[in-house]
Amino acid sequence: MGLFRSVQAVTGASGDGPVDWDAVGEAAKASTDPGSLALADGVREGYAADVRDARARVREVAAVEFDVPDTVEIQNRHHWIDANIDTFRRVMDPLGEQVGMLPGIARVANTASMSVALSFLAENVLGQYDPLLLAEGTDDHALYFVHPNIGRVSTMLDVSEPRFRRWIAFHEVAHAAEFGAAPWLSDKLEADLETAISELADGHIDRESLTALDTTMTSVEGYAELIMDRAFDDEYADLREKLDERRRGRGPIAKLIRRLLGLGMKRRQYERGKHFFETVADERGIEGASKVWEREAYLPTEEELDNPAVWLDRV
């Protein structure tokens, strides 16, 4: 029934834009098991304690001043789709002129593609720090935990769910630390993203803005990986090994979808960025690595990400 509803929603895509976003949400949720949010006693309080402890620990270890968002949600997969569909819309809608000669057919194809992407991500995201890029208004950043996925993956990895959940909380709170310590970071990402989208809408690929986005996001993900481990208040070596193995060990269909979504690049960002920050932290400590967020000029360049010694000499 879910698959039928999903196909029905996509084939009924309508409207004037390149994507029928109402149909995307309906199709993605129809093809995705929401998962249970029937939380056992103490689990909700456990999430809150994890976030509080991670905030205190990251502040102490990284020596950066920040706070976590006011919005911290424990979600199921449908909640995550609802929370992220506007982000997809903000990125895709400026590309409307690229629909082509047969907008009706293109709209159905685009709607199907977006629903598959959201469904796949909703099945795999564990936690998310959302800086609400390109959003209008003064909405605060947000922090989400997709509880059904955390429970499923902790079982797959054969690790304690509370311990695994806590480690994930440290990763997401590290993202809050980055954006809190660097008020300019959101503006930089938005400017590079808007430039890349604008050029794509005109039928061009702006490699400079795309490279800038990749370089910044490599720093964002690499620093969070470093803090996730070194600020964590428990042993993590087994968690790190199992999570890295999970990132590598996808089936052929999942690997294809991840490649189409650019998630292979995201894994490369994790690995490349983590190597950079581990090298810097080994040399100058985590406080030295945190210097990246003091000003935009301290972000590593594309060359420096692969040669941390160059960054250390410069900064």
Rank of each mutant, 00 (worst) to 15 (best):
S6F: 07
Q8S: 15
V19H: 00
W21D: 11
V24G: 05
A30M: 06
L37D: 06
A38N: 14
A40W: 02
A40L: 10
R44N: 07
G46C: 01
D50M: 04
V51H: 03
R55A: 15
R59A: 14
V61G: 05
P69T: 02
T71E: 13
N76M: 00
I81M: 07
D82A: 12
D82Q: 05
R90Q: 06
P94F: 07
P94K: 05
I105Y: 11
A109T: 13
S113I: 03
V116R: 14
V116G: 10
E123M: 11
V125T: 11
L126W: 02
L134R: 07
A135R: 15
E136H: 06
T138L: 11
D139T: 13
H141L: 09
N149M: 06
N149L: 01
N149Y: 00
T155C: 10
P162F: 05
W167I: 02
H175K: 09
E178L: 06
G180W: 05
L193A: 15
E194W: 07
T195W: 03
I197F: 03
S198N: 12
G203C: 04
I205M: 12
I205D: 14
E208W: 06
E208T: 13
L213Y: 11
T216A: 14
T218Q: 09
T218S: 09
S219N: 09
F232Q: 02
F232N: 02
D233M: 04
D233G: 08
D238M: 12
D244Q: 14
D244M: 13
R246S: 11
L256Q: 10
R258I: 03
L261I: 00
E271Q: 11
H275S: 15
V280S: 07
V280L: 04
E283R: 14
R284M: 10
A289P: 07
W293E: 04
L305K: 07
D306C: 03
N307G: 10
A309K: 11
